[in-house]
Each structure stands twice: as structure tokens, then as C-alpha cells.
Amino acid sequence: MIRFSWKTAALAGLAITFAGAEVMAATTWNASLWGKRRAFTEHMEKLSELVAQKSNGEFQIKLHYGAALSKNRENLDGISIGAFEMAQFCAGYHRDKNPTITVLELPFLGVTTLEQEIKLSNAVYSHPATQKDLARWNAKLLMPSPMPQYNVAGTGAAPTSLADFDGMRIRATGGIGQAFKTVGAVPTSVTSSEAYNALESGVVDSVAFAPHAHLAFRTVDIAKWWTTNLNPGTVNCPIVANIDSFEALSDENKEILMSSIPEALDHYLAKYGEVYDKWGPVLEENGVQKIDFPQAEIDAFRESAATPAREAWIKDMEAKGVPAQELYDLVVKTLNE
């Protein structure tokens, strides 16, 4: 016969208490980022803060920088297998993995503000073809990382006309790389984290980045010149969640997460505005020559790059079963609105 003592009962009660505590434990998500904290990641910082506040610490998003969880080119793969619950990536890093959102990286779309970039991204992210595309990687699109138009910082002789880009090795991904290719440049897809070393060692002659990235990855520290007004386009870098992890959230935590996104993006916009307060003085301090291209040169660049890139993209994507024309028309419609 089994005899129960107060010790047995106490241990049983303790086990039940621990089991209950385990069930009620906080939900913790890991988010894979790269580089360090910067304007490009401020919406993630704010989202993490808001989620923790609204849930009283019961739902937390831990941010992992420096590619601690995964390399930036492999974040989508990590999401697909559930290695982590949330990640940031850029479409241009692997166009074949996310063909639908590469429409947002076409050159000279005519986007002029970060607010427009957010609306445009959300429109494309909401399209059924885009959601189906990313679902192949078990990824749910949550929000963009809106960035301004890219410009180029480089070493060596400063370009003053499009002809000067002929033969120039330039770090440029996606549609921006294709745009520079039309004027004879040689684009490479060096990652942002590798850009400084590539420029310093002469692997590339120039780097196309938005201002925050030139600051964060220190290319502005060794650049001799900077193009102020080429504005060929930008890259699109979504924040995604693992679909299974999202579906496993309680209804309350889903609401907390999704309702925090607008405020996180507002915070991002405010922080990005501070980048421009720093940018001018840093250029001045480092003695970086500002190159203003004549409007005729910019118009010629647009003419050589925009239409051919768009037509080639639509033809290529339609052949792969992507409703490319429909997605491009959505971009135009959204911008016109």
C-alpha cells in the first residue's frame, strides 16, 4: 500500500505549481537582425518595447544583432524552418526567393517620401500573390523598413557625368544595380556588413546606400565623394514573422503585435529624420565632395534605366508565373492616389 505523507503532498503540489507556471510562462520571440542598432532597425526596437508594455511582460521580442542568429542573406531560410520567430531581410539579397516584392525595387518609381514608401509597401504586401509568395517560406509580412532613395559614395575620381560610371565597380543590389548596369557600371551584391571592407580594399569603387547605412557601416568615413541627387531607387526590406509562430499566439497577443505596428513605424520615421541632421555635418567633417548632377544627366539616367528595367522585370516575372503587370499597375495606382 502506498503511504502519502505531508512531504509527498507538498512535492506533488509544488510540481503542479511549476507545471502551471510553465503553461502560463511568457511568450518570447527571437528576431534576427544584422549590423547594429540604427535608424533601419528603430521600428523593431519600438515594436519590442510596445509589445512588452502592452502585455505586462508576458509577450517579449528579443532583438539579436550582428547576425547572431543568422546571416542577413539567410534570414528568410531561418524563418522558413522556424529557427527564430521574426526577421528582417532585403528583397534584393535573393530575388528568386521573393520575386513579388522586387517590384518595389524597380528603379525610378517616383517615390519621394518615406510615408509613400510605407503605403506602397503595404499595398504590395497585401496582394494575394505576394502573400502566397512569402508563404512558401512560412513567412508572414508584418511591416516594411522604409528607406529613402539611394545615392552613391565612392573613392577615386568623382563622377560628374553618366559616362564616368562606365566600368565603375559599385555595390548595388536589386533594381538599383540593374539601373547602374545600363550606364556601364559593374554592380556587385556585397552585403551591407561587407561594404566597408570591399570599398577600403578596392573590391568595389563605390557603394550605393541610403544615408543611415553609409553612417552605420562607416563607408562615409573613407569615401571621397557623394552623389546628392541621382536617386535611382531604393531597396525593400520587410519584417516578417514565422507563420506557425504567429498562429500560435493568443488572440490577445496577436492584437498587441499588430496594433503596435503603426506606432512602431511612426517612431521609425521620427528617428530617420534625425539621420539627416547628422548627415550634412558628417560629410563636411570627413571632407566628402558633394556631386550634384545636372538635371539633363538625371533625365538621361532615368530614360536609360527605368523603362528597360520595368519591361525586363515584367517579362521575366510573368514567365515565372508572377502577376508582374498586375503588381506594377498596383504600384502606379497607389502612387497616383
Rank of each mutant, 00 (worst) to 15 (best):
A305C: 05
K97L: 13
S259C: 01
A324Q: 04
A9Q: 04
V288L: 04
M147K: 12
I16K: 04
E45T: 15
A21N: 10
Q88T: 14
Q88H: 14
N336I: 10
L76C: 04
P107H: 06
Q149D: 10
R38N: 15
F84D: 04
N231Q: 08
K71A: 11
A213Y: 07
E263N: 14
D299K: 11
N138S: 02
Y276T: 09
P148Q: 11
V203T: 15
E263L: 05
N98L: 05
A67H: 07
S5G: 03
Y196F: 11
H267Q: 10
G66R: 08
L141F: 03
E74N: 14
H127L: 09
G177E: 02
A9M: 10
L215V: 04
Q149R: 13
G175W: 01
A158S: 09
L269G: 00
N56E: 14
I239W: 03
N122K: 15
N229K: 05
D292K: 15
T8C: 09
A223T: 03
F293E: 11
K46T: 13
Y328T: 06
G92T: 10
Y125M: 13
A135K: 04
F301I: 01
V204L: 02
L215P: 10
L120K: 01
L14W: 09
D77K: 11
R302H: 05
T334S: 07
F293N: 02
K290P: 04
D205I: 02
A21L: 02
T191D: 08
K7P: 03
Q88C: 05
T160L: 07
P159H: 01
A195N: 03
K271D: 09
K320I: 03
R37G: 12
A319S: 09
V204H: 03
H214M: 09
I170F: 02
H212G: 09
G20Y: 04
T41L: 06
P148E: 12
M24P: 04
H94I: 10
I256Q: 10
S259G: 02
L141H: 02
N138F: 05
E303K: 14
E74S: 14
N236M: 03
I243V: 13
E285D: 15
S145N: 15
K119P: 07
V111Q: 03
T234H: 01
V235P: 00
E22C: 07
A26R: 06
N75K: 11
